[in-house]
Design a binder for these strands. Structure first.
Lengths: 120, 120, 120, 120
DNA sequence: GTGGTCTAGACCACG
DNA sequence: GTGGTCTAGACCACG
């Protein structure tokens, strides 16, 4: 899986990394149980600090996306358990985006079409 | 209009303020041409520094949401002009949220229903 | 002569007024010796504060563009005397604008054509 | 690059700083990709507050002149993208300066020569 | 009375 | 070590 970091984004690097791994899981590119690179290897590959990768892994672990053990490193959790609801943060973000879309005179139908395209 | 600041959020106060005003405009709670509180009044009301309010207003101004004049303070721009497209940032955020929703086993239909509810 | 004030400009109203009168003189719309409206009349016509008009007149007077006397009010100075050189401020502004034009990849010829058009 | 702040100018310090950096980019004194001093270092050097430098940097960033990243601080954007047109504000300023030049009996040819000299 | 500017100083997230 | 955020407080230009 290819990770792309934008050094100039407002989104911190560890969060960009976390997001891309989550998206990889969601798309199926990262399979349940799949081994992730070691912190060191991934840091080297992307050209970022090991601390940054470590932080991303810790967040993914605390969110229940990955498992880590000393022997095998990190891997995608075979059975990810999540509430079948959006988090409050995500609801807020959605509301903000929808508000901006409405002000931009994007109509509801084309907005939903965008969502449907993204869902695939 | 009631502004609520979450001190524990990662989102900076000025941005929370900016977001809530944008949502107020979108919902119609803040009408085109409507007067906003003065920087000082709003700072006092929310219990934050005038600079922080000022920063929010300046962002809103630079984004074309409000107008400020020396005499009357700030008001909602009567004709807000926006590109009828989602920004790249908003698209990225949507993509992230959708990915998380899919992992949470939220099905597409109920996700879209959520959007439709929020759109109203 | 029609004066147009933009309440939302960063340029203070008194300065907008001053600028428009200077441009009126330059274009010939305001002739040497021509009477200007009284402070009160102009304030009423434009819908601004008399203090603001007064401030504009004072600046124009100190710059040698107009004459005021208690009896006749203000009028355009019959013989405006100016150094036949740009002021330091105007040179600085020109330099700034040229710098921005160059970065915008505007070519020198089209920039000068713009100047020549404006000069007419 | 030497930055000179005029304490007595009407132009705010952060804007003087912004202008001088833009002029530095335009003249080539600041090369694409070149590192800028840190906010703290520049504040110390000029003898102003870090917030003021920070404000200048944020404006330059929002205008697309510079990039900032958390690791390395600010640098000149390698590829600055600008509309190849003068802004309305710059056109207005040009018009004002030309008007004043005409009143000062500066003739068109020498005015354009001044522009050409500045362009180099 | 309004927003705009600036300072000194603090704390924080990021890497 | 870097920029980002926030505060308290001051002063100023404008109208």
């Amino acid at each position: 899986m290819i990770i792309k970091i934008n050094d100039y984004s407002d989104v911190p690097i560890y969060m960009q990394l976390r997001n891309q791994i989550v998206m990889g899981i969601s798309s199926g590119e990262l399979a349940p149980g799949e081994q992730l690179p070691t912190v060191r290897a991934l840091a080297l590959e992307i050209g970022i600090n090991t601390m940054t990768v470590s932080k991303a892994y810790q967040i993914l672990k605390s969110e229940g996306y990955i498992l880590t053990d000393r022997k095998n490193g990190a891997r995608i959790r075979p059975e990810i358990k999540k509430e079948s609801e959006l988090s409050e943060e995500n609801k807020n973000e959605l509301m903000r985006i929808i508000s901006e879309a409405k002000i931009s005179k994007i109509d509801r139908e084309s907005f939903i079409r965008t969502i449907e395209d993204m869902w695939k």
